[in-house]
């Protein structure tokens, strides 16, 4: 068991290193660099000398290997340096954007779990009835709708409906206030994006809950319980749901890790100053240090969530043996 854990933990190292090398390489393969973007984006002419000075200032004139080793050394020390675009420490840049993204991810998860587990269970129990069909269509709708489109439409609807009802149009705030400062303002900003993201998330989890439930319901012990005449509700609570939840928990964990990356588009729609939008900015500005740090952050979240889910899974389900 401990050997297995150790092995799994050690195996994350090549993944992290590989991702580091990949992002380092990809960023440098993109034509142009941050100095060009900084000096030329206004369309005015600039001195080639300024370009050289800028390269020197941010250190991209040094040999590529030196830059790479410095990056790796930084990862080891958890020090990602300063953003080439703003001159601020990368950690400051990311921490400034983290609260809103995490808040939306958590809210979306809550929305998703709150919808998915009850609906998925009902759908499985009432398999092939109209309820099941309705739930399944609702779920596939969530998977089939582009979330940014849902976002655009929902903002518009809110504006039009409030305008029609009260005469003055209302929209969610466009700047973030921490929840402990003004919870109402904060939540009124976060709820719409959470629902648009959460719908897809709920849809995926709902389908998983349904099929997991269906499988468990066919397991012998559930059949036995049924044969013994136990009432359905008891069976569901005591036996089926508990076991069906395992794969659902896994999925929720993995989806959560994906969520940070998945917020990219939603944050654009709602003018949220989150990690996803920072990501797009960093890449478009060709800010090497910031992009590298963000990639390592998402990769690490993904890798460690997976690790945690795997270990948890094994611990919860004694049928799985650690090889």
């Amino acid at each position: 068991m401990y050997q297995y854990i150790l092995k799994r933990v050690l195996l994350t190292i090549p993944t992290l290193l590989g991702a580091a090398a990949l992002v380092f390489l990809l960023m440098r393969l993109i034509p142009g660099d941050i100095c060009l973007v900084r000096l030329g984006s206004g369309g005015a002419s600039f001195d080639p000398k300024a370009l050289i000075a800028c390269h020197k200032e941010i250190g991209v004139d040094r040999p590529i290997l030196v830059q790479f080793l410095e990056f790796i050394w930084g990862i080891i020390r958890f020090d990602f340096g300063t953003s080439m675009w703003s001159g601020k420490p990368v950690s400051t840049e990311i921490l400034a954007r983290l609260p809103i993204s995490v808040e939306i991810a958590l809210l979306a998860t809550t929305v998703a779990v709150g919808i998915a587990i009850p609906l998925g269970t009902i759908s499985a129990l009432k398999q092939n009835t109209w309820i099941d069909v309705a739930v399944r269509i609702f779920a596939i709708g969530g998977i089939a709708t582009p979330s940014f489109w849902l976002g655009i439409v929902s903002v518009l609807l809110v504006l039009d409906i409030t305008s029609w009802v009260s005469g003055t149009p209302w929209m969610p705030p466009i700047d973030y206030v921490p929840i402990w400062k003004d919870p109402i303002r904060n939540l009124s900003m976060a709820i719409l994006p959470a629902i648009t993201v959460g719908y897809r998330y709920a849809a995926v989890s709902m389908r998983m809950t349904r099929s997991a439930m269906l499988e468990v319901m066919r397991e012998d012990y559930v059949r036995t319980a049924r044969a013994k005449g136990l009432i359905n509700k008891l069976i569901i609570n005591r036996h089926a749901l508990k076991n069906a939840l395992l794969p659902v928990v896994t999925l929720i964990g993995i989806e959560f890790a994906f969520l940070i990356g998945g917020l990219v588009v939603t944050e654009q729609v709602f003018n949220l100053n989150g990690v996803g939008r920072l990501f797009v900015q960093a890449v478009q500005n060709q800010d090497y240090t910031l992009t590298q740090a963000l990639v390592m952050l998402t990769v690490a979240v993904f890798v460690f969530t997976n690790l945690a889910v795997d270990l948890l899974y094994g611990w919860l389900d004694p049928r799985i043996h650690f090889a």
Binding site: T15, L22, L26, L29, P31, V283, Q284, V299
Partner: peptide, 22 residues
């Protein structure tokens, strides 16, 4: 498996941005 770990963990958006930019 390690290679697919890397690609799975790598944010799609970065890959796409890089492919398009390159």
């Amino acid at each position: 498996q390690r290679l697919s770990d890397i690609v799975m963990a790598f944010p799609l958006i970065i890959l796409a941005l890089a492919v398009v930019a390159i």
